[in-house]
Write a protein that binds this DNA or RNA. Sequence first.
DNA 1: GCTTTAAAGCAAAGGATTTGCGTTAGCAAC
DNA 2: GTTGCTAACGCAAATCCTTTGCTTTAAAGC
Lengths: 186, 186
Amino acid sequence: MATRQAVRTGGRSARVQQAVHEAVRDLLAERDRADLTVPLVAARAGVTPSTVYRRWGDLQELLADVALEHMRPDGPPADLGNLRDDLATWAEEWLEEMSSPTGRAFTRDVVAGDDDGRSTGQCCAYTSSNIQVILTRSAGRGEDVPTLDAVLDHVVAPMTYRILFMSDSLAPGYGRALVDTLLGSR
Amino acid sequence: MATRQAVRTGGRSARVQQAVHEAVRDLLAERDRADLTVPLVAARAGVTPSTVYRRWGDLQELLADVALEHMRPDGPPADLGNLRDDLATWAEEWLEEMSSPTGRAFTRDVVAGDDDGRSTGQCCAYTSSNIQVILTRSAGRGEDVPTLDAVLDHVVAPMTYRILFMSDSLAPGYGRALVDTLLGSR
DNA sequence: GCTTTAAAGCAAAGGATTTGCGTTAGCAAC
DNA sequence: GTTGCTAACGCAAATCCTTTGCTTTAAAGC
């Protein structure tokens, strides 16, 4: 009797999730985000609105879910042979993606649709995982390596803060400058 | 003929704004934020919902507006006679306010209800203004003073990032530690 | 005062959201 | 592969939120 019922992850559920995510991506590409609604997304996905409401709760949480999808690392960060270049290159690429209007909107969606700290936590975990790869690799070379927290505090946090709160104050080279400050700019 | 019509700032408009803000504050104190709605707020404020919709657009923007109200500086930061203590004290107080569940919710509201960068910009302006007071005062004493940007990048940004993305990783003393790192911790 | 008109009220129309119930189709055990 | 169980979906009615056209009220300037 006490066989705990498994959450269904494959088959129809997976197809619905995929169709809904794709519908959101398509609609975001062709319409203004302000006139996106759950019924609209559902219709595009070939699904009833109530399905979306029951699975995601509301539009914000759905958007947060889709945004997280875009942020998932698609491969290990580039290896340029030394810590400084690895970090700086990663930071510049991250900044390039995240500071575009689309990127900023994703970050906002993750924060806005964050019921219990799950989506922001996952977002941070993706970032941390990339950085940790760089740090571990560097330590393997025998370099002096900052802590993950130091990189989060002094590279990721400033970039994120400026994207969210000072969106017009972002110049190219900012990511590299932050890395130089962290590592000592000699 | 070309007398540009003034926006109405006093009288009834002011009373409505005050009543609506107060209604939001009261309701946030006694109910879960998830079941806050515009009609509910309007009823409490003794106003029709359409008035709220026309002035604020939607609930998110109204919440952002109320959150900003809470963030407005209520006085100049404390003067302890030296830059390090002034900054550290300010940072610790700011962190104490902002890292509470209520404080975090306000920060989220400001980001979520940010149509055009106005509310996040204002939020950042309040913070910057406080910091600038500290820096200017310190420069007047002849101390060596970091730039406003450096304080935003290495003190405010890390605190904000952790509040939004890593809400469980905040220990007391974190604000002071960031200031020590920025100023050199001898 | 008097005029002008921004902002508020009212109410109907249009959508979004919720919810109960029947149906479909994963998953596990046999 | 067949069967039993039930999570997840579809459907539709009911509810509630949101928008909008029009009317009324009351700031602001003369």
